[in-house]
Design a protein around this nucleic acid. Structure first.
Lengths: 226, 226
DNA sequence: CCCTTTCTGGAGTGGTGATTCCATTCTGTG
DNA sequence: CACAGAATGGAATCACCACTCCAGAAAGGG
């Protein structure tokens, strides 16, 4: 499930040979950098902060990474792993309305427990780095693509089982769900209140439910929990 | 329709007395700063860039603004004006499915014409500044609140006319629509492709249409344009 | 156990960018 | 038309931060 958080091409400045110890140090740097960059911002995180948080010396960072942008690229990959892991195991089995509603509750609870501060790790990085160069943008797009795939696979399973109408499009619905989540989290983050993300997710899930083949009572309201 | 782009409290360092010329200069600074900060980023915009773009001298900026954060606050207000104006006149009359679909087409076209680069001005600022202090966050929340109000008013009009079912919630739908737009634009910006924002908006609009009182054919698919 | 390669510490350093200072020129008002 | 306050230019300051250098310690393979 984990993606390598290497950078794809021409990345670490060092020969591809990493000692066991070296791997551990590199991982500690990425982890510390991710934590700092996610909770504050990329621009606001100085290499010296990373150095201190990772417990390494200044030269280590440049031993393992070409420069700050290269470190940021590694952080994006790592953040994707963190986000996807935080949604397991439910993210892996999103193939029923019940599972989708449970996932919704899970991500809402995740935000609530942080008082809506910080938003989505991947979304925050995206907001800051979307125009910071093609390599960062590509890494972010790849991260979201992994996420979207997980959502789409669940919906596709439902579709193939005949639980979704033939005119439903799992890919479109997966994109809509991911967009609703990201936009909802952003607004929730600004307002420090989960209402926006709940509204966005529930509205999208209600739409999906209206596309199921056994819609139960034909109320437009679907079968929301409370 | 315009909000003052002053900062709310303790802002410009200068006595509240602004000459006609001073007002013009201040406006030029905010406008130039907004353009730069929106198209690249806040952190990536140097005061010297603003100075050059506005055609003023370095001291002017600090004559009209306490410091960079104060300038950023003014930029947020200005960006809100720009975004809302760019959606007029359709944003002011979002009280029918046809108008909502037209608005959807308009915002999609806006992105397409920029090749999805830059995203939403207000959304980009939000992504970068959401955790950059309460004053910036408050200013962003206020900007989005203005936007949400415009959406909600249209939906409320529909509701009061009886065009939406009693169990529809205009406020919730307005939030969902704004979230879908923001999340959709973000994903579209990363992929340089309008598909995500179209998916997000269409899915939400279909949901709203399913809550109208004269739903036409009971297909779950609503009456999308093409 | 030797020798090459990797890893580590920590003191620089060079460039950048926000902010200040002050002298000078305008603006508007009594 | 004088003068108080506002606006302007631009050089100077000053902190900060990404990144470099080099010398020495650890690793690991033959």
């Amino acid at each position: 499930m984990n993606a390598r958080d290497d950078d794809s091409a021409a990345l670490s400045r060092v020969p591809a040979r990493l000692t066991r110890k070296g791997q551990a140090t590199r991982a500690r740097i990425v982890d510390a950098a991710a934590r700092l960059m996610i909770e504050t911002s990329v621009a606001g995180t100085r290499t010296d902060d990373v150095r201190a948080a990772a417990g390494v010396s200044a030269s280590q960072i440049y031993h393992y990474f070409e420069d700050k942008p290269a470190l940021v690229r590694a952080v994006i990959g790592h953040a994707t792993d963190l986000v996807l892991e935080a949604q397991q195991p439910v993210l892996g089995q999103l193939d029923s309305m019940a599972a989708l509603r449970a996932w919704r509750d899970h991500v809402v609870e995740l935000q609530r427990s942080h008082h809506c501060a910080g938003g989505c790790p991947l979304g925050s990085l995206a907001g800051e780095l979307a125009e910071a160069g093609d390599s960062a943008r590509g890494a972010l797009a790849a991260g979201f693509a992994r996420w979207e795939t997980a959502l789409r696979e669940g919906l596709t399973t439902m579709y193939e089982r005949g639980e979704l109408r033939p005119d439903a499009d799992p890919e479109e619905l997966a994109l809509a769900l991911l967009a609703a989540l990201q936009g909802g989290i952003l607004l929730s983050q600004l307002r420090r209140d989960t209402a926006p993300m709940r509204a966005a997710l529930d509205t999208t899930l209600d739409r999906i439910e209206s596309l199921t083949t056994a819609p139960g009572p034909r109320t437009g309201e679907g079968a929301r929990k409370r």
